[in-house]
């Protein structure tokens, strides 16, 4: 079956079209749907197999990044989201989408009433930065990274990407459940320093999944490494067959085959 992907738009979403393209490239049907259509009930989440919250600055990231859209999900779409997840479907949040998932209570595990235990806050450098980073891909239950090579190369572009936990027990639990999917790394997969860890994230965390492995959130942009010419050094090292990001989207599509 060709899965249907809902790429969720809101005021200020801006990586929606490339996320749609990445899923189409991987063999899915992908539609851009504005959050108002879900809120009004014109579109139902149940029609879809994959929900993507793309990058951008929803509602300007005013107040804090992703917060307003997160509250819309939490207070107005909770039932649909719970049913969606219970139906063995996939949710992906990239960059601003990751911030939304964390603030809405879909990560580190789906509990829309729980008090937030992790967050993404201002970069340690104090500014927005766009740069390419190496990511170590850990053993995890994550559906999106099944069989993905151990080191991938994606760009980050954010001002609020520093992953922090409320306390050490939260981190312990993430480690125990193998929920830390991506960690910033040096070019050889070694321990990173700034700017390899571009934002000062605790334990170099770049992306986490829920315990089921079916909800993934990450700050880097896999949808910006689909075409080989996306690679910042392709003029030096030659054109690869495809970008490192393709595998994530293909895995999501394969999950429904």
């Amino acid at each position: 079956m060709k899965p249907n992907v809902l790429v969720l738009r809101a005021a200020g979403s801006n990586c929606d079209q490339e996320a749609q393209f990445a899923f189409q490239y991987a063999g899915a049907n992908a539609e851009l749907i504005h959050v108002n259509r879900l809120l009004e009930g014109d579109t139902k989440l149940e029609k879809f197999q994959i929900l993507v919250i793309p990058g951008g600055f929803t509602y300007g990231d005013d107040i804090s990044a992703g917060k307003v859209l997160a509250n819309q999900l939490k207070y107005k779409l909770a039932d649909q989201l719970l049913a969606f997840h219970a139906a063995d479907k996939l949710i992906l949040g990239i960059c601003n989408g990751f911030q939304v998932l964390v603030k809405a209570g879909l990560l580190p595990e789906m509990d829309l009433n729980a008090s937030q235990t992790v967050t993404l806050t201002n970069n340690a450098s104090g500014k927005f930065e766009d740069r390419w980073v190496h990511l170590r891909v850990n053993e995890s239950p994550c559906v999106f990274t099944r069989g993905v090579k151990s080191l991938v190369y994606f760009p980050v572009a954010h001002a609020e990407g520093k992953f922090v936990v409320r306390n050490e027990q939260v981190m312990e639990k993430l480690l125990q459940n193998r929920q830390i999917v991506f960690q910033y790394a040096g070019a050889d997969g070694d321990k990173p320093a700034y700017p390899q860890n571009p934002n000062g994230s605790m334990r170099d965390v770049a992306g986490i999944c829920d315990p089921s492995g079916r909800i993934l959130g990450l700050m880097p942009h896999p949808e910006r490494h689909i075409d080989p010419t996306h690679h910042p050094q392709w003029t030096r090292i030659g054109l690869a067959e495809e970008g490192d990001g393709v595998a994530l989207f293909s895995n999501a599509v394969s999950y429904f085959r």
């Binding site: 990586c15 490339e18 393209f21 766009d130 996306h230």
Partner: peptide, 14 residues
Amino acid sequence: IRQYDHEVQAGSAL
């Protein structure tokens, strides 16, 4: 340059 998102829309080839 780094403070600008120079890759959004995913069309950056150089």
